[in-house]
Amino acid sequence: MDNSHSLVSVIVPVYNREKLVTETVASILDQTYRDIEIILVNDGSTDRSLSVIKNLQQQHPNLIRVIDQENQGQTVARNQGIKAARGKYIAFLDSDDLWSPDKLKLQIPLFTEGVGLVYGGVELINENGETTGFDPCDRQIQGHIFPQLLVKNRMTGGSVVVLREALDSVGMFDPEFSAAENWDLWLRICKKYEARLVDTPIVKYRLHQNNMSKDMTLMQDAKRQIMEKHCDRHSPDKLVAQYSKLAEADLFYKLGVHYFSQEQFGKAIVSFLRVIKISPFYEDTPVRLVRSMMGRSVNRILRKFKKTQ
């Protein structure tokens, strides 16, 4: 399968990003893979974003198209972009994040027969664009990864490219999800297709106060929604059954860690005990449970001791 000249449609939902979207678009235009179109979907911005992206369209009329809609959220915006896309492959990028120049050049050749999705590693940056860390890929999470993907979302949306044929088969983003709509779509694709990865950082993900992933209640509710839709602890597929149980363990583990960080040790104990009932040695649950039982005073002493080391 020769993909070297296949069109990639890049969809960028835009909401109040007048100061960042130009840099985001520049990182797409700088791709060494040249067969691209960029679809910018203005989601009812109240700042100058629409004016900025229309100006970009005027500068690159053969590469950039602008869709303007009333504010309906990024899920609807991405779906509008998908409907307008002409490419064999569809890529996604948020309007405050950036791509490395070789991103698509590294990913597109990995779309061999049966592959529906390719993702990659992430470089974390702050509001000023300074690197704060890295989120590498687990090289084992490729191939038929649907069961493993039940436990946690392994893919940052801006790193993902999907086969248009796969979207035609499984559908677009589900607007019923208030969060984790990316994860839901990756699961639907990976249930029918294989996934591949690029294990180097190919997207710069900007961390700031507005990141939805920082809203613990929202993300936990979204995970429950994912579990209700995709998990099956009694599946005849042993891997699906196994990872469905681990998904439940991971839910209570993350709740426990959250309560632990808030020094709500009673709630943390309840959560970690639920993890142990499902998977006794999941992550560092036994250690977390013991620490929670020690209470506030001992844990504050331990934290002070760690800082001095």
Rank of each mutant, 00 (worst) to 15 (best):
T46F: 05
R48H: 14
S49A: 11
L50F: 12
L50R: 11
L50P: 11
I53G: 05
K54H: 14
Q58L: 15
Q58G: 07
Q59V: 03
P61E: 09
I64R: 02
V66P: 00
V66W: 01
I67A: 05
I67R: 02
D68Q: 08
E70F: 12
Q72M: 12
Q72G: 08
G73S: 06
Q74F: 10
Q74P: 10
Q74Y: 08
V76I: 15
N79S: 10
Q80F: 09
G81N: 08
A84Q: 14
G87N: 07
K88N: 12
Y89F: 15
A91N: 08
A91D: 09
F92H: 06
S95Q: 02
S95D: 15
D96R: 04
D96G: 07
D97Q: 06
W99L: 15
W99A: 05
S100W: 10
P101L: 03
P101G: 03
P101M: 02
D102P: 00
K105C: 02
K105F: 10
L106E: 13
I108G: 00
I108Y: 02
P109F: 03
P109Q: 05
P109W: 03
L110G: 04
T112W: 01
E113F: 08
G114Q: 04
G114C: 04
G116H: 01
G116Y: 01
L117N: 03
L117G: 01
L117P: 03
G121P: 03
V122K: 00
I125P: 07
N126T: 09
E127L: 11
E127Q: 14
T131P: 13
T131K: 15
G133D: 11
G133E: 11
P136Y: 13
P136S: 08
Q140A: 14
Q140V: 08
Q140P: 00
Q140W: 09
Q142E: 15
G143I: 09
H144Y: 13
H144I: 08
I145F: 10
L149K: 13
L150N: 11
